[in-house]
Amino acid sequence: MSVDLRRVGSLMLLLMLWQAVAITADSPLLPDPVAVVARMVADSVTGELPYHLGATLARVAASFVLAFAIGAAIGVMMGRYRAIDRVFDGWLIFFLNLPALVTIILAYVWLGLGEVAAIAAVAINKIPNVAATLREGARTLDGDLAAVAKVYGMGRWRTLRHVVAPQLVPFALAAVRTGLALIWKIVLVVELLGRSNGVGFQIHMHFQMFDVTGLLAYALAFILVVQAIELFILGPVEARLVQWR
């Protein structure tokens, strides 16, 4: 986890640019970075920002786990069994191309403006993505290694854990990465449209009051959390899983 100096440099450049434009514009509609950070700190102290961030994180976690479990099961089945693949391939294409907004609105209409609808809407948006990725992985499973497992009587669970799962790891990691990026964004829309807490809700509130500083404070906090998860959770997990390479 070495700090990439070029990346730090390019971020500094962005901040400086922002600062310069803010000074030139001199408008409450474009606060400078210092004001935004100050607001982030102030809202953190009152507990408001952590509360909304927490609500969003909980939704991301719940819908992510749900989408991943269901999507992986569907994808692996489709990758392993021709017949299932043929039946559901059309469905997959349909759901892959269904706009997220449509799913969200339909979930709220059909299930009511509640937490279940919110999480279901996000999960449904993500499931086809996970399924398509893991189907690719399941299609490329190595039959030679399956033969080894069979000859040596490894049994179902052991085979799944030590022979099959490691082959799916790169595909699962790809699904996690693209999945999180997608889910973060959809959760915000879900919150904006039908929840009364979370980062999406707060951004909506600040938008209605033209409070750009507050809006940017939440956006920045959100980006920082996403990056932290990437850096401190996903990165190390991935490094551990592929250390044999």
Binding site: V148, V151, H162, V163
Partner: peptide
Amino acid sequence: MVFQAPRLLPWR
């Protein structure tokens, strides 16, 4: 069984 190729699990 010793297969023609070693067929070891590379991740173990």
